[in-house]
Design a protein around this nucleic acid. Sequence first.
DNA 1: AAAACATATGAACATCTGTTCATGTGTTAG
DNA 2: CTAACACATGAACAGATGTTCATATGTTTT
Lengths: 118, 118
Amino acid sequence: MAKRDHAEVCAEVCTHPEILEKVAPEMPDEERLYDLAELFKVFGDTTRIRILYVLFESEMCVCDIAALLNMTQSAISHQLRILKQARLVRSRLDDDHVRTVIGQGMEHIEEKHGRKRA
Amino acid sequence: MAKRDHAEVCAEVCTHPEILEKVAPEMPDEERLYDLAELFKVFGDTTRIRILYVLFESEMCVCDIAALLNMTQSAISHQLRILKQARLVRSRLDDDHVRTVIGQGMEHIEEKHGRKRA
DNA sequence: AAAACATATGAACATCTGTTCATGTGTTAG
DNA sequence: CTAACACATGAACAGATGTTCATATGTTTT
């Protein structure tokens, strides 16, 4: 009995209603947050990041990308589809936000790890 | 035989050495790209994005977050650990890069979908 | 038209990821 | 000290994700 209460306490008792009431209305709607997570999910894979980086440098055919990344043509094709669906890549790279977002991310990890090289 | 050749062609034949030689040296090192993907992976989950957004608004206890997001305390705790490991959250929110990166991402999806509301 | 080239795709599979459940740990109040 | 509170964590499981393999679908060349 004491144990069961214990389990329930934190989930139901320890909330501060003022905070909830203040914060809840400020949250973006669920759809927006979902889309945002989806976007970052696309960036969250080494293969796709590498693809974006090679496309920063030059437009090139799928086979060249595959050769550069030392992966199969099929794998690249699958990943390119995901990048296109997210509108990050069209025929070539799509827009500047891609560079900006990735750039900001890179700055973050640079700062944290205190490395050199831009 | 013709079929086997077909399968091999694209992976080995259709590369343009000039491009490979030009682009390859420009690529950041693998470790860096890996870390970058890891960072975005952290942003690439709705629960974690929502946690970051509530923490934008106010410092609060785990149980409040759980109540706000309508999830268990355990789930939040697990996700908070990931955010802390990525140094995005300390006791409260960590730094401005977090806001900047997320803001850029949001701008991207806004632009694409042509929605209103900042 | 046939062959070569370039890319796309579906199924299968192994791995990774997020949540839940149960419980552990540390801290504060009585 | 004991109970209440706040948070952390490990195992288990279901669902998602990335790669491979085999093959399909365009598109040029010849």
